[in-house]
Each structure stands twice: as C-alpha cells, then as structure tokens.
Design a protein around this nucleic acid. Structure first.
Lengths: 340, 340
DNA sequence: TAATTAAGCGTAATCGATTACAAAAATTTC
DNA sequence: GAAATTTTTGTAATCGATTACGCTTAATTA
C-alpha cells in the first residue's frame, strides 16, 4: 500500500523536498547529478505523484465534463470517444453525464461538474432546455465551454456542429433524384437549432427543384420509434400520401419503416425513407436505411482541439470559434431505386 | 468569477476559519447562533466548498472509475447508468474508460484511473486479458474493486454477475419446446467465464432433454455481426444443418438472421434463433429477436451497493461478495412458433 | 587574486479545508 | 461568589506538491 511522497525521497537522500520536486519536473535549475539520483530513487521507491495535491496547488483538476442527452446513442458515444482520444495524451480525464433530454437534470449535472471542479465542459444541450442560467454560471466562472451538435447561440462560446442545413438538402435532393415528388418531413423539436436547420434545408431543396410545399407533409416528431409509426399512420390517411419521407432522426425513420412494411407499402418502390445520424442500427434494418453521417468522432476531436486552444492561450482571452463540419449522405436500400 | 474560501468568511465575521469549517459541517461543538450566522454569510458570499482541497485532506477523491469493453453497447451503458444512479446520492462522480476489448488498453486505463486517485474501480474485463498484474496493483493499493458481468476469479474481489448458465439453459429449453432438435451454439471467447457458463448451460439442457451433442454445431464466434454470417454459412454446408441457433451474443445472432434470410431459410419455421444480452436493436430486427435480458441496471446498482458497503465498513476488512442475478428470457418472433 | 556572476539548493509560504489540542468564555455547582 | 465543569472558539499542524526568494558554493571575468 504505497504512499511515497517527495518528502520520503528528500529524507532518504538528505536533500530538500523542493529539490526533489524540481528534479522530478525537469527544472533546469538543478544539477544533472542530483536529478538523476532523484529520478532513480523515485523509481526505486515507486513514487507516484499525488494528483490531488497537484490539483489543489495548481487549481487545475485535469478533468473535463461531457454532458450529453444519451450516452448510449452511437452518435454521442462516438463524439465522446473522439474527445477522449484527443484529450487523453494531454493528461485529461473525462466525466460523462447524461441529461436524458431533461432540462432539470442538465442543471443538476452542470452543478455536479462545477462542484467536481472540471477544467472545461463539453455539452450538447437537452431538448427541453429553455433558459441558460446554468450555462451562464459556467461562463461567469471562466470555465471553457464547448457546444457540440446541439448548441445555444451565446456570445463567447465556441461550438462544433455539422452543416445540418446542407445535410438535409443533400438528403432531399437525393430523394428527388430518385423520382420522389411528394416528400414528407419528420421534424424534430424546433427548440433545437439542428432541427430548424434540417427543416430549412428541406425547404430549400423543394424550392430549388420546384416542388410544392405541402404543410400536411410536415409532421412534428420526437425522435422516438413510436413517433415515427404514428407519423406514418397520419400521412397514409391523407388523400395524397407522400412518396418519400425525410426524417430528422433515425429513430423515427425506423418507426416509419416498420409501420410501412406492416401496411404493405414497399420501400423504396412506393416510398423512399431517409433518416439522420447514421445510428449503428441503420445498417441492420430491412431495408437498410439511408441516412446522414455526422462524422461524430471528428466532431469530438475538433471540440477537444477548440478546448485545448482555449486552455493553452492566455487566461484573459476568450476564444470564440464556430466550427462547422460537413455531413455525409449515406445512401442505402431504403431510398435506392437504382438497384431494381 | 467566485473563489470564496472559508478564510474570506472568517475574515468577514472576525472569527477563525476553524469555526467556519465547523459551522459548515454541522459540527455539534458550535453555538447555534454562530452556525446560523456562518451559514447565512456563506450563502450570501456564494461560498462553494473546494472539493480538491477536501480531496487532498481526506485522501478521498469521491470519484470512481468504470472500465468497460464498449460504452456504446446498451448492456454496458445501462450498467453504467445503474452505477451512476446509485452512487450519485452519495456524492461520487464517475470516470468511464473503454478498453475496446484490448488488454493493453485495459492496463493503460487502470493506470489512468489509479493516477486520478479514484476511490474505487468497477470493471468488466476485456476479452483478451490474460494476466492480472494490473488488477493486482489495484488490490495492493487497497482500492475497492468490483467486477461486473465479466469477472476474473480473484480472492478478495467482489463481483456482480448474472447466472449465465441458467440464462443459456432457459434459452435452449425454450428452443427445445418449440420443437427444435438440432440446436447449434455460437460460442464466445472461452477466455471469459460468461461464455464458458453459457456453453455449459447449453450442454446441460441438451443432456436433460436427451438431445445428442454434435460437435459440428458448436461454432466459435467473436460477437461481431460478420462472425454470425460466417457461422451460418458453415452450418448450412453440413449434411444435416441445425434447426435452431442459440447464440451467446446478440450481434452474432443478428448476422445469422441476415444470412439466413439471404439464403431463404425462414425464421422461425425452418430455424429458430436466439441471442444474448437484449441489445436495443434486437427489438428492431426482422423478425424481432429472442434474447436474454441481463438486468443491467440492476447489475449496476448492485455493484454500486457492494462498493458502498466496502467503503462504509472498516478499512482493514475486505468484503468479498459474489452477487449473482437472475437473467430473464425474452421470447420474440425469431423463435416463437406458436404464433403461426 | 579579488570581484562578479551564475549555478545549485534550502527555507518557507501557498493552495483550501479539517481537526487535535489548548485556551477562553459561559454555565453549573456548592 | 469562587470553583468546577461544560461549551465554544482559536491556534497551529496537516494533506502533498510547487515556487518565489535568498543563501551557499562554484565558475567566470578582470
């Protein structure tokens, strides 16, 4: 049960703890002889730096917090992985919190992270978050904050997102090229920018290709599977049902596919379906699902880099960087009419 | 940018920091009048306890580490959630590390966690882990360790697992009751106890129901989808292919279903398929997949409770507790012949 | 060789909170 | 009202590492 401190080393060598500390930190103001001796002795004694003492002294915990709605969605877990991989070599650890899309839990988790004295916070805001008092608290404390994917537009805060507008545009354009003329849209919670952007990308594509806008084709959904099945039921009751669905979420698209198969609508012949996020299950559905990849690992790495830049710069200078990554359309069977 | 310490409070009130500390900690050796005054002033000044200082003083970081092979599998992320929910009220944070089933990464992550001075470690060992030197280091340091699901049998270490033997037995028994007589098994890495137990449960069920054991029906797989498709290809080449598959993993079962559909074998009529873990995609496959639920949230909560028990007990007493939970068979379409 | 400069190391303060021990104040007892 | 007791508060050490400042030496320069 080791608890070797620099004092133990200093006693053994009859030198001061300061010298030991300097030797261990490669401080130039130390003779090579002493440094080697200390290093050797430290190794022999199995010395390990007490990170808690270091944290107290430096005021840096070397820990960052990541706040996501759901950590078991492949999109979010991949972003987390990206952040981890980038931050790991810099000596940071990661604390992960889930909000489960609940604003209250978000506030609570922010408090937890602040209490843990994290050096930075990465977050994707919850669907239900309205006010930003808890976020203001983070900023007032001068703790670097980076939004990824789901952001709030706040001055002085960096963010890494994808071009949701373009992702949507590409999807709808693809559907149009498959010959679809009546394209429905499963819209996410408009409280979040990403869903607003996807909706606007959808609109722009319709306009550019001279397709009519039909209000009945816009269905409000909540990125749950059941929400997708319900939406399809609604759409199929219309006098003229759509011939394609552009869903803002893979989950609702999945629900749609299930319901369409159930009522005998063939995909993609009678109806093309496309989702958003490239969740891992999209490659297992039948038919496999067309979707938009959000390059989550890259998003995580970029977020981490933005954070590191902030940390390495001057304390007083706040860097506000808005990184926008390009999404990638992944065409699969649920919308690919060329195969048959 | 607040940085209020107990010294700031003590100066303001012209009392000693010790008194402030005592008041804040509800120490009985303090007059009610002073306590109230301190509490009120602390609130006014927005005092927040410096957890790093507390950690250094107490030697407790109030952080635990969780080590899993993959954090984006619903089984593991649910266990993590269970641990979090149970530990949260006790003031612990959680650092999550992924090994991606790589033994080297496991060693490295253990070091990272020890370096972060976690108060305890929860882990599910990686598939490739052979020796346990890194685990011994944890034990030698006296840091409570709890295995969940995938354990190593080490003296003095607690574990929370499910009864894999019985989970397998129930599955195979169910297949037999569906009329299956030639049941194949996708076996996982025998290096892990869980897969050994599942295999033995499979064997016992065959024996109990007087079904012959066919060595050709045992396929070594690696819980990847492709491994399942390959296994099916192998099985279908046999003179007498099986009429059921009991897979030790949902992923390989998924591969099997995909391949079977491709070659025109109907499920469950010609072949019943069952998986293991109740991954969330199993309810979306076509047909939906029979599987075994491992009650992961409960597993997480139990693990946390075992840890808390160890923490609350005497330091010198090591509690070794082996908790075994009951798995739950979930029958779905891939093995349910009663419907048709 | 004396004077100047630099290198190497030690002393002690610091980060913020807790707590054993001691001292002061308040209360009780006779 | 003095002594004994109890309650309340203060002093100072502690957790382990870092670092400004200053003091010895050794090296350099004149």
């Amino acid at each position: 049960m080791s608890k070797v401190t620099i004092y133990d080393i200093s006693k053994k060598l009859n030198i001061s703890a300061a010298t030991v500390s300097r030797a261990l930190n490669n401080n130039p103001k130390i003779s090579i002889k002493t440094r080697e001796l200390v290093l050797k002795t430290a190794a022999e004694m199995n010395y390990e730096q007490n990170t808690l003492a270091l944290a107290l002294k430096s005021g840096k915990s070397n820990t960052v917090g990541i706040l996501v709605p759901y950590m078991d969605r492949s999109f979010f877990s991949s972003v987390i992985r990206g952040i981890e991989e980038e931050l790991y070599p810099h000596g940071y650890h990661v604390i992960i919190c889930q909000t489960r899309d609940d604003a209250k839990s978000e506030v609570q988790n922010i408090n937890t992270l602040l209490n843990a004295q994290v050096d930075g916070i990465f977050m994707s805001v919850s669907k239900t978050t309205k006010d930003t008092l808890h976020i203001d608290r983070v900023l007032r404390k001068g703790i670097p904050l980076v939004f990824f994917d789901r952001k709030k537009n706040l001055p002085g805060v960096s963010s890494v997102t994808i071009d949701d507008f373009n992702g949507a545009y590409m999807s709808v354009e693809h559907l149009i090229r498959q010959g679809c003329k009546r394209i429905a849209h499963f819209m996410g919670n408009i409280n979040l920018e990403i869903y607003k952007d996807r909706y606007n990308g959808y609109l722009k594509a319709l306009t550019d290709y001279n397709l009519p806008y039909n209000k009945e084709y816009i269905i409000q959904t909540n990125s749950k599977v059941e929400s997708g099945t319900a939406a399809v039921k609604k759409l199929m009751k219309l006098a003229e049902p759509p011939d394609a669905i552009f869903s803002s979420s893979d989950f609702t698209a999945l629900g749609a596919i299930q319901e369409l198969k159930k009522i005998g609508v063939s995909i993609p012949e009678d109806m093309c379906v496309s989702g958003f996020s490239n969740e891992s299950f999209t490659q297992y559905t039948e038919p496999t699902m067309t979707t938009v990849d959000q390059t989550p690992i890259k998003m995580g790495k970029m977020s981490a880099r933005v954070f590191l830049e902030q940390m390495e710069g001057e304390v007083s200078v706040t860097i506000e960087k808005k990184v926008v990554l390009s999404p990638q359309l992944i065409v699969r069977d649920s919308s690919d009419r060329s195969k048959k």
